[in-house]
Computed example of a mutant assay.
Amino acid sequence: MGIHESAHGLVSYWFGDPTAKEEGRLTLNPFAHIDWAGLLCLLFFRFGWAKPVPVDPRYYKDPKTGMIWTAFAGPIANFLLAFVAIFIYYGCVKAGVESSFILSLLGSIAILSIGFGIFNLLPIPPLDGSKILFAFLPLDKYLRFTQGSNVMMIVFILLIASGILDGPLMTMVSNTIDIFSSVAISIWKL
Rank of each mutant, 00 (worst) to 15 (best):
A73N: 09
A50V: 08
N29R: 03
F116A: 12
L40W: 12
M170A: 11
F180K: 00
G9A: 12
L40Q: 02
L81N: 08
A32S: 15
A95F: 12
Y89R: 02
S162D: 10
R144M: 15
F136D: 01
K51C: 12
L42V: 09
L122Q: 05
I114V: 14
R58V: 04
I114H: 07
T65H: 05
E5G: 12
E23K: 14
E23S: 13
A37C: 05
I118G: 01
R25A: 04
L112V: 12
Y13M: 05
S108W: 13
L39F: 13
E23G: 00
S162L: 13
G48T: 11
A32N: 09
V183R: 00
A50Q: 01
F116G: 07
G148C: 11
H8Y: 07
K94P: 00
Y89C: 00
C92H: 09
A95Y: 14
G24M: 04
G167E: 13
S182P: 00
L40F: 14
F72T: 07
D35G: 07
C92D: 10
I160Q: 05
S162K: 13
L165Q: 02
V53Q: 04
N150P: 00
G16W: 07
L121H: 11
W188T: 02
L137M: 12
D140S: 11
A95S: 11
K94T: 07
P63F: 05
I34D: 01
F119I: 12
V151W: 15
I118L: 15
V53Y: 06
W36P: 01
L40P: 09
G167S: 15
G66Q: 09
F101A: 10
I88L: 13
S162V: 13
T176I: 10
L190R: 06
R58D: 09
M172V: 11
F180E: 03
P168D: 11
D17G: 08
F101G: 01
L26K: 07
L139M: 10
G66H: 04
I109N: 04
T70I: 05
D178R: 12
L159H: 02
F79T: 03
N175T: 10
I164G: 00
I177P: 00
L105H: 09
N175G: 01
L143Y: 13
I118D: 06
W188M: 03
G91E: 06
P30Q: 09
I114P: 02
P30A: 10
P123T: 05
D17I: 06
A110H: 09
S108R: 14
L106W: 10
P63S: 06
T171G: 01
I118P: 02
A161K: 15
T65K: 15
L103I: 02
R46G: 03
F47Q: 08
I185H: 01
L122K: 08
T27R: 03
M152W: 15
K141F: 14
I187Y: 08
I111C: 04
D178E: 14
C41P: 00
M172W: 15
I154A: 09
T70C: 08
H8M: 02
S100A: 11
M1Q: 05
F79I: 06
L137C: 08
L137T: 07
L28P: 05
R144Y: 15
I132K: 08
